[in-house]
Nucleic acid binder design. Structure first.
Lengths: 206, 206
DNA sequence: GTCTATAGCGAGATAGAC
DNA sequence: GTCTATCTCGCTATAGAC
């Protein structure tokens, strides 16, 4: 039974993850977290000092989840641009489909407090400029070799991220506007894993 | 001097627009709005009953701003698919560059309360399904005529919206990650007005 | 219409019993 | 470790003077 034990601490973190990610810091009440965890609100303060402490733990975890896989693909060597795009698209859509509120959470919290991005980015050893540069250089080489149409690396990068991330960020709007249910939406995202890569490659190949 | 008069009521609405759009309902304090307007907090309650009342007024205005132009383009007849795409892209990027926090505001508030989309959509006489259908039919015809590669209308629509809206939604992240200043960012968005249309058209044309 | 003062309440945090 | 009771504070909203 020891393996099956879920400690109160874990229950709190699990619940805080759900609630913070769905509602954001400002709209979350500690009472919501306690209810979600099925525990008394006081226990939050016993295990973690205060709301902000719990939030910081959650944010770090989710921040890592959001960025880490992408940065690994950035760093990967000896991969063609097209394959890199395919990997990025597949990874982003797969990850965000599993965690539909994650992108909106990271974006809104960073918008409210841009310092978070610098702080946790540094903490995780990310150096955005270097990594972005590696992608931009790869694109520049392909443009120079005339294997793809002229495009700035940073514009292409924005296009890739947009096509993967936006549908999940805007999911609540899309569900209503397109009148689809959760199941159909999942199928559409599944379909995008293939189609978006090809869409991008068709857009840039000569 | 009468024309130059700005009433207290207008000042409050102007301030509320800024603060709500930047911070969202939950993170906004009425004190923030009062400070931004340069007035006493009590006056908010004199002119408008409470925080929620002000928010509703602001949300309706901003909701209209976000959706209206797009729906007019949807409805426009006798325009080729490619031209419709060009118009949508130009309109969305122009509008969102002017109001950089608007998309994030609409998305997060709707995510917290999906009923808003139905309520205000109906109020403004939008019927998303019909309008989306008109676009999907147009795409289906072009696919059928073999003038463009096979693609579902709703996937194409998502791609268009993604490429226009995401960079503005994620602006706070992009500024840091790409190490660009406000001015450079504006230039990048200006550049996108042309490039995104061509990117999409290249992706789907035969 | 605009201000000061204050009521009222919701939410975070703590004390202390068990 | 977990609970009940309570303190405190910040924020919304209102009363009432001017």
């Amino acid at each position: 039974m020891i393996l099956a034990e879920i400690t109160t601490e874990e229950r709190i973190l699990e619940a805080a993850m759900k609630v913070f990610t769905r509602r954001g810091f400002a709209a979350t009440r500690t009472e919501d977290i306690a209810k979600e965890a099925g525990i008394n609100r006081t226990l939050l303060h016993y295990y973690f000092r205060d709301k902000q402490t719990i939030f910081n733990l959650i944010f770090e975890t989710r921040f890592k989840e959001f960025f880490k896989g992408l940065f690994l693909i950035f760093e990967a060597d000896n991969i063609s641009l097209f394959d890199k795009i395919r990997r990025m698209v597949d990874h982003e859509i797969t990850m965000l489909t599993k965690h539909p509120d994650l992108a909106r959470f990271i974006i809104t919290e960073v918008a409210h407090n841009p310092q978070l991005l610098i702080e946790y980015g540094t903490k995780l050893g990310m150096n955005p400029r270097v990594l972005k540069q590696s992608f931009e250089d790869l694109v520049a080489r392909e443009v120079n070799d005339k294997t793809i149409k002229p495009i700035e690396g940073r514009q292409l990068l924005m296009n890739i991220m947009s096509l993967c991330i936006y549908p999940l960020v805007a999911k609540p709007i899309i569900l209503t506007m397109m009148n689809v249910d959760e199941r159909t939406f999942s199928q559409m995202m599944e379909q995008r894993k293939e189609e978006v890569s090809e869409f991008i490659i068709n857009a840039i190949k000569k």
